[in-house]
Every structure is written in C-alpha cells, then in structure tokens.
C-alpha cells in the first residue's frame, strides 16, 4: 500500500508542474484537477475518507468548475495563448525557482532533523469522529467559517455586478 502513496505523490507533483507551465488556461485547469484527485487519493490512503470525499466534491467539483465558468465568460482565445507565450520566457523562472528551492530546502531541514518519523495513517479517522470534533471543540470555528462564507457570498455578488454606467465600476449609490 505504500507504493500507492508514492505513485499518487508522483502524479500530484508532475500534474502540478504541468499546471504552472501551461499556456492554455483550460489545460492548466484540467491538470490541476488531476493533481487534486491524486491528493484525494493520498487522503484516502492516510485514513481520512471524509477529507478525500470533500476534496473531490468541493475542490475539484465546485471550485474548479467555478474557474471553468469564469474562463468561459472571459472568452480567452488564441490571443491569450500567444500572450502567455510572450510572457513566459525561460529567463523569468530563475528567481522564483531559486526562492522555491530555498524554501524547500528549509522545510526539508526542519522535517528531516525533527522527530517526525512516526508513521502516519495507521488508524483511519471516520467521518463520524470528524463530525463530533467539528461540532464539539471547534464549534466556534464553524460559526466563524459561516461568517466568512456569508461575507464571501455578499462580496462576490456585489463585485460581480455589471454596472451599467461606464467609467470606474463599483460606484454604487
């Protein structure tokens, strides 16, 4: 079963690499969905079935679909691809890649030198337990999350409105 984990991990990493290098938005999106599915599998293997299900339903299912809608609305066509090609020259990868490398090295240092070798995923955690914990000690967090979602809802509605006046958008009486 460990092999499945490493395989899924490899798929996730490769797919993520493809996401950040594609020129076509829809292609990148699809690769991201692949990556998300791989991570969902990893969740399952670690004994977190609820997390896996939620990852697939919400992340890959809802959020990515939202992205699809927006991309379709914006009608990004071939000119976008040409634009991306112009923007993504090999030279600009150096700085961020170096930064990313530095971060990974630091994280590796922490993980390797710390006492973190304990195996994970030995006991699966059932959704029931998650539910009890969620509405037990983390109840306040749930309420706060609902605030956040409400705010997101209102904000998205307000910002997404198409103002009929010209000029700077967002001028609401």
């Amino acid at each position: 079963m460990n092999a499945a984990f490493y395989l899924a991990a490899a798929v996730a990493v490769i797919a993520t690499g493809m996401v950040i290098t594609r020129l076509n938005a829809v292609h990148a999106l699809l690769y991201l969905i692949v990556s998300l599915l791989a991570v969902a599998l990893i969740f399952l293997l670690l004994g977190a079935p609820l997390a896996a299900a939620l990852e697939m339903i919400l992340y890959a299912g809802a959020i990515m679909v939202l992205f699809v809608f927006v991309i379709m609305m914006l009608n990004l066509g071939p000119q976008t691809v040409a634009q991306e090609r112009a923007w993504l020259r090999p030279g600009i990868w150096t700085g961020p890649a170096a930064l990313g490398l530095v971060l990974v090295v630091e994280l590796l240092y922490v993980f390797v030198t710390g006492d973190l070798g304990h195996p994970a995923g030995q006991a699966p955690v059932a959704p029931k337990q998650v539910g009890i914990t969620l509405f037990g000690p983390y109840l306040l967090g749930v309420e706060l999350a609902s605030f956040l979602l409400l705010a997101g809802l209102v904000g998205a509605y307000h910002l997404g409105r198409r103002t009929h006046r010209g000029g700077s958008g967002g001028q609401v009486p």
Binding site: P96, L99, V102, L103, E106, L107
Partner: peptide
C-alpha cells in the same frame, strides 16, 4: 515570499 523564507531561516 522572500520575507517568509528569511524568517523561516
């Protein structure tokens, strides 16, 4: 990001 890297370091 640079700041985060430095602080982490």
């Amino acid at each position: 990001a640079v700041g985060a890297a430095i602080v982490l370091a």
